[in-house]
Write a protein that binds this DNA or RNA. Structure first.
Lengths: 212, 212
DNA sequence: TGTATTTAATGACTAAAGTCAAGATCCAGC
DNA sequence: GCTGGATCTTGACTTTAGTCATTAAATACA
């Protein structure tokens, strides 16, 4: 049985940790539509580890297995590939309340084709695949959240695919402005260009035309 | 209590139906890694309805809600959009053992942005969202299958996005040949071109060059 | 089998986007 | 504030892919 002293000792840690985890708890509850119990929150806090990444630091490098999935508490990152000409192509821009990983590599434990790199100083909560399976997936709110995410992701991927196939660079740029207007403030233009599948020069010219 | 006669009456129907449903059962069992009980199979057979589509017939038209999800037993279809210039862009080619729907419209019951049209005479097994939720999702093998599908789909969408953003028309075509070699035999070249985001003329020229 | 329709190939031209190079501007860190 | 790297703009040119028009080939099907 726990003494009053022991409980007291835990409080400062608890308070400190809780504030870190609040965004994650809010996110899981919001997407799943379920409430997390105090016990369930403890499970999260025991198995997710806080990690800081400096700007330009890599979360994952091509060829490595994506051992962790991370929840972005603060900062941003890009997921990109490098083609045979040495050009980088950004597939995903991740900001607060997004997950950071390469699905394929993380679930199948195969070497990744992607690089994931911090664009700003970051704070993430990360966990391994094995620990997710053993401790986190059994939490109903988490499993429900996963289903919602994969549904949303599938829909978003389809939309993006549609614009990649059927729209001009300019149209894709306009769409990005509408969907993620803050991206323009937050990320350098060459990153936006790479995300749209355009050269930085082309995006610069598109913007110039759009303003006239 | 059921008489011997009544059971006997059911057998021919059962046998007839079973043969239709075999591909679906095999598919669910394979993807989920679980075995379906006789009772569970009966649930499938009670709620999925067989439907035939003639070549060129529409399964879904832009602006309509995608009321059904269909499992392709035989034939093929394309999912496409029409842009403001009247050009069609194929997002998905569906053949045997694939599902036929617009996720977004089907789950959210919103008007679809896509058309789905048979490219060959088709035979599908279809069901509404409400019936899936009530009768089919509770079957563990089906729920497990859904998770596997959404994982696979997410990975495939990411791969396709990567090639759309970072590869030339020719490279995308080569990749298609490697991944789905039978598509070239089965579908007209202009459909393949549309799927790759190319004009039919460009694909024709790419093929000519590749042969030299 | 013959004819209409669809699909594919090709040439000439146009449009969109990429490449390379140079200069301007912005900004982080000392 | 100064300085070096990063980012952005612009011009000249090249490459890639789209468009339009025409002809050829394949296919459907009556």
């Amino acid at each position: 049985m726990r003494s009053k002293k022991a409980i007291f000792d835990l409080i400062p840690i608890g308070i400190y940790m809780m504030s870190d985890f609040t965004p994650l708890f809010d996110y899981v509850e919001k997407l799943s539509g379920k409430v997390l119990s105090a016990d369930e929150k403890q499970i999260f806090m025991r198995h997710f580890k806080s990690k800081k990444l400096k700007k330009r630091q890599y979360f994952l490098q091509e060829g490595d297995v994506c051992k962790y999935t991370g929840f972005v508490v603060k900062g941003s990152a890009r997921t990109f590939t490098v083609d045979e000409k040495g050009h980088e192509h950004i597939l995903k821009l991740s900001v607060e309340n997004w997950w950071l990983n390469d699905f394929e590599s993380f679930y199948q434990l195969t070497p990744s084709r992607f690089n994931i790199q911090a664009l700003e100083d970051m704070e993430i909560l990360q966990i391994t695949n094995a620990l997710v399976d053993e401790f986190i997936k059994p939490i109903p709110a988490f499993a429900a959240m996963q289903n919602v995410i994969s549904q949303n992701y599938t829909i978003a991927a389809q939309k993006r695919m549609q614009s990649a196939i059927s729209q001009s660079g300019e149209q894709r740029f306009q769409e990005l402005i509408n969907e993620y207007p803050h991206f323009l403030q937050r990320f350098p233009q060459n990153m936006i260009a790479s995300y749209l599948g355009l050269s930085p020069e082309t995006l610069s010219r598109i913007r110039k035309n759009a303003l006239k």
